[in-house]
């Protein structure tokens, strides 16, 4: 397992979640990035290839971050999405591969003709199977 976080800081103006781990690693993860990579079934589906493309999340905000046991946090976004449990391991991974993952997202978004701008949400499901029908 990767490190254990010591502090999570929410920068509400710049929409960044700053997480520091006990091995010294520190990542600044934009809310939009966290939102489109939410580990929930709504976003990830129930297996590889079932992901649902998230669009229009450029300005998404975080209402609160709630502890889950001692292994994860639940992030409550202002677009009512709150079903993703972000484990320490997952947050570490997001931080380590932030650049690549973000590039992947942008490419997928472009391929699907979606936009990061808010207001572009309606029916922009991906061509990749479209998830399991969860909300």
């Amino acid at each position: 397992m990767s490190g254990h976080p010591t502090e999570i800081k929410l920068h509400q103006q710049s929409r960044l979640l700053e997480i520091t781990f006990d091995d010294g690693a520190c990542f600044q993860l934009p809310y939009e990035f966290l939102r489109v990579y939410s580990p929930s079934a709504e976003v990830k589906g129930h297996g590889p290839g079932q992901e649902t493309l998230q669009v229009g999340k450029k300005n998404v905000g975080v209402r609160e971050v709630l502890p889950v046991g001692s292994y994860a946090v639940k992030i409550v976004y202002d677009d009512r999405h709150d079903s993703g449990l972000y484990t320490w391991e997952y947050l570490y991974e997001l931080g380590q591969h932030q650049a690549d993952l973000w590039q992947n997202y942008l490419e997928w978004l472009a391929a699907a003709g979606g936009s990061r701008e808010p207001g572009s949400e309606p029916e922009a499901k991906s061509g990749c199977g479209g998830g399991c029908g969860h909300a």
């Binding site: 254990h4 010591t6 999570i8 800081k9 920068h11 509400q12 103006q13 971050v65 502890p67």
Partner: peptide, 13 residues
């Protein structure tokens, strides 16, 4: 203290 939950801070920055 490895089991302690990290501090969560909300900042207006």
């Amino acid at each position: 203290h490895s089991t302690v939950f990290p501090k969560i801070v909300v900042q207006n920055t």
